[in-house]
Design a protein around this nucleic acid. Structure first.
Lengths: 166, 166
DNA sequence: CGTGATATTGAAATAATATTGCGCAGCGAG
DNA sequence: CTCGCTGCGCAATATTATTTCAATATCACG
């Protein structure tokens, strides 16, 4: 990851691919204002350097029968690093847990979970999560609806900031 | 969205594209066990029927200088639908807010925010979010680290469940 | 300011992929 | 059965990705 700095074209590429990850390279090249070959080379470089971690289809989980989304705020008994890591490792093993973020403040972790129905989630909650080693408290909140769900980076803010600093 | 039901091949397609959204159609066809043309037709159908909402590059926001991620728990004064919608609309206008979910329980919304640095976020927090109409309380937690961040749907769970029900 | 070393570009050629057209097989209803 | 429907795969064509290479731009240094 020899992070060379990004020029405006690179940032445009990232913004375009974040918005539409399946854009063809010719279309992308047209939009960022260079020809196809250097455009593709830039994309490959961005991938290698880790600016692009991967590409994913955005699949509608409700359409697939995952009716329930839950945020779970988890407090642990011990915040020693080894215990934090152990909990994270357990989260990685639970398929219902889609995201696991360690936080500052009173709560140690927030988990975003997805389940086909409430009873599946309840079972997971009582038999797995709450029952896990070192878990002191779990507060859950059902997602009623989602008003906004954008991927990654607000490029608008980034460009604004770069202009201002220049 | 004339939601025809999905067969195992469709689900495999969704799982593969969720894992790698830029897979070529021939590779995808190989993996799901059919030839390229019908595979592409299925993908198009899945897109049209809304099972696939889009494709996105997963861009590393830290590499781009967005050092700060925050979860904000927001309580409103009024939970009347018109006030809820008004708040959601405001969230859509704030670029630092990447996700906005309405919850049940004591907290009305959870927001996932991204900012270049702490002071940018603090400014947003005090001058925009906390100051917004109808906002009663905001509790924020910095993300210290992210142990897991998977896209969308746990297909493992879905398949398990289908097998069991069969 | 030059000037050479180093990158980066774009046109053209080639390889790979996507997409269309069409005939065939499987299957349920009459 | 056999018609009608659906979905498959082969083959042909259109697009796109990728490599090659000569020309241009960029930059450190004298």
């Amino acid at each position: 990851m020899a992070s060379t700095k990004l020029d405006p074209i690179d940032r445009k590429i990232l913004a375009e691919l974040q918005a539409d990850g399946r854009m063809t390279n010719v279309e992308l090249a047209k939009r960022v204002g260079i020809s196809a070959p250097p455009c593709l080379r830039r994309v490959r470089t961005l991938e290698e350097q880790g600016y692009i971690r991967g590409y994913h289809a955005d699949v509608d989980s409700r359409a697939l029968g995952f009716e329930v989304q839950v945020f779970a705020m988890v407090g642990l008994m011990s915040q020693a690093e080894i215990d934090l890591s152990a909990f994270e490792e357990r989260c990685r093993d639970w398929p219902l847990v889609r995201e696991c973020h360690m936080l500052n403040g009173e709560v140690d972790f927030v988990l975003k979970c997805a389940a086909p129905d409430l009873s599946t989630f309840q079972t997971f909650l009582t038999e797995e999560l709450t029952a896990a080693d070192n878990v002191a408290s779990v507060k859950t909140s059902l997602v009623i609806r989602c008003a906004k769900d954008l991927p990654g980076v607000p490029f608008e803010v980034l460009e604004e900031r770069l202009e201002r600093d220049a």
